[in-house]
Structures are given as C-alpha cells and as structure tokens.
Simulated assay, not measured.
Amino acid sequence: MEDDDEINRFSNLLTDEDNKPNAFSTEQNDSPNHELLQKHFLRSIQSTVTIRLLPSEGLSFQLWPAATSLVALLDSHRINPTNSPLSTVFATGAPMRILELGSGTGIVGIVAAATLGSDVTLTDLPHVVPNLKFNAKANAGVVGSSGGNVTFAPLRWGDAADVEVIGREFDVIVASDVVYHDHLYEPLIETLRLLLVGKKTVFVMAHMKRWKKECVFFKKARKHFCIDVLHVDAPCNGSRVGVVVYRFVGKG
C-alpha cells in the first residue's frame, strides 16, 4: 500500500542547535564481518563515543534515525537542561538508574550514561549482547569520566523471567525505533506493563513512523499508559516525517 511505503532510516543524522550535522566519522575495517566503527562527538562533554556497527548481521547491529535524534537531545540536554525537551524526565542532582530496551548498538544508553552520569543497563536479544558488551567496554573511559556506568543483559520482550532478572527499580526507560514489526507489539507492551504500571518510572521512546499499521501499537499501548509528545524533529533529507519522542507513564 502506498501509505505504508518505508521511509529511509538513514535520513536523519545527528544535528546541533543550528541544524548542522555534528562531527562524526565512519571507518570500515577489513574484517570478515565488515564491521564499521562510527565516531560521534558529544559537544556537551567534549568527548567522542565510538560505536561498532555490523550491518551484515541484521537490523539490531545498525544505526537507526531515532537513535541519532535521541543522542542529539541527550547531548543538548547536558548543555542546557532548562530548555531541553527532556527536562521533565531527567532530573538534575542524584544519578538516575536507566534501562534501555532494544538497545541495538547501544549508542543511546552509552550516551545517556556519559551525558547524565547515570547507571545504564543495555538490553536486547541474547545474540545482540556481545556487541553491546564490545561497545560498552570501548566507551568505558568516556562514560566513567562523567561518573556513569554501563552494564548489559539479555531481555526478550514479553518474557517476565527476563524482567525479574534485571529488576524493576529503574527511574527511566529509553528506547528508539522499537516499533516496526507488528508481531512484537504485544510483547513490547507486556514488558512495558511489567516495568511501568504501578510505578513512577517513565518510558521515553523515540520513533520514526514508517507504516500506517503502527497506529495499532499506540492504540493498544494507551490502554495501559498515558502517552504524550515531548519533541518532534523537523523532516529532513527527503523524509516525509521527523522523529517523534514520546513519554509513557503507567496508569494506575
């Protein structure tokens, strides 16, 4: 269907306050898995985060637009928290415990740890965890210098046992580009329900709309959560829509 045409997921790059790309570079290694090392300069801490991508391994090993948008917001929040769209979520003062769902390369959680000085747990499917571990260790120096810490664990959506293993005592949960396959809507909502309902925990989700059917996810999610919009990126590089950052709070 025409309305369901896929939007180019590489259309959004990190942008600064003047809407110019942040300094970043990509290096390709001559390795069997054709890994890419992408470097992202964070103005707020004057440091560079290096992320290993493994495009040949699948979607979880690539960088998606909503992740880069959330990284840019975290960087800007560190510089000027008062005027940040994230100011109602990330409190100043005491370090926060943050959980990232569907971490993929782990860039959002790693940047959150570095810019907020927070304790962040990266999670994804078991086969993705080794790359999360690689990226967490590669950036341990940058994260540690800001007082942050990054750990990692497998978390299969909809699996209550996995949730019990990582615990439920998080202040904020973050995710980016996790609403894409409709068979994952219910498992994702169930995991969020286990983590949010009856708690003060807030879920921040950056999302770029690609399919008309995604409205089904939001319709189902609103049965359990109050959802509002924190930020909307302007469309760029030929996209029809920009990345939207949502806040979910559990009902009851």
Rank of each mutant, 00 (worst) to 15 (best):
5 D>V: 06
7 I>E: 10
9 R>Y: 13
11 S>M: 12
13 L>G: 10
13 L>R: 15
13 L>K: 12
14 L>T: 15
15 T>M: 15
16 D>T: 01
17 E>A: 01
21 P>F: 12
24 F>M: 14
24 F>S: 14
25 S>H: 01
30 D>A: 09
37 L>T: 08
38 Q>A: 13
44 S>C: 05
44 S>T: 05
45 I>Q: 04
46 Q>L: 06
46 Q>D: 12
55 P>A: 08
56 S>M: 15
56 S>Q: 14
59 L>I: 04
60 S>M: 02
62 Q>A: 11
62 Q>G: 09
63 L>Y: 09
64 W>C: 05
65 P>G: 11
65 P>Y: 11
67 A>S: 11
68 T>H: 14
69 S>F: 12
69 S>D: 10
71 V>L: 06
72 A>C: 10
73 L>E: 00
76 S>A: 01
80 N>S: 00
88 T>K: 01
89 V>F: 02
91 A>V: 06
94 A>F: 11
94 A>S: 15
95 P>Y: 01
97 R>S: 15
97 R>A: 14
99 L>M: 10
103 S>E: 05
111 V>M: 05
113 A>S: 01
113 A>C: 02
115 T>G: 03
121 T>N: 09
123 T>Y: 11
126 P>I: 08
126 P>D: 06
127 H>P: 03
135 N>Y: 03
137 K>Y: 05
137 K>S: 15
137 K>W: 07
140 A>L: 13
148 G>F: 02
152 F>V: 05
154 P>D: 09
156 R>A: 10
162 D>P: 07
163 V>K: 03
164 E>G: 09
165 V>N: 14
165 V>A: 12
165 V>H: 13
166 I>V: 14
167 G>R: 13
168 R>Y: 11
168 R>C: 12
168 R>Q: 11
169 E>C: 10
169 E>V: 12
169 E>A: 09
170 F>I: 08
173 I>E: 03
174 V>W: 04
176 S>F: 03
185 Y>M: 13
186 E>P: 07
187 P>T: 15
187 P>R: 13
187 P>K: 13
189 I>G: 11
190 E>A: 13
190 E>Y: 11
193 R>L: 12
197 V>I: 11
203 F>G: 04
203 F>E: 03
204 V>P: 00
204 V>L: 01
210 R>H: 08
210 R>S: 02
210 R>K: 03
212 K>N: 08
212 K>D: 08
214 E>T: 03
214 E>D: 04
215 C>Q: 10
219 K>W: 07
225 F>G: 07
227 I>P: 04
230 L>I: 02
231 H>C: 00
232 V>M: 07
233 D>I: 01
233 D>C: 04
233 D>E: 15
233 D>M: 05
234 A>N: 02
235 P>E: 08
237 N>W: 12
238 G>E: 07
238 G>D: 06
240 R>A: 06
241 V>F: 14
243 V>P: 06
244 V>S: 09
247 R>Q: 07
250 G>S: 05
251 K>D: 14
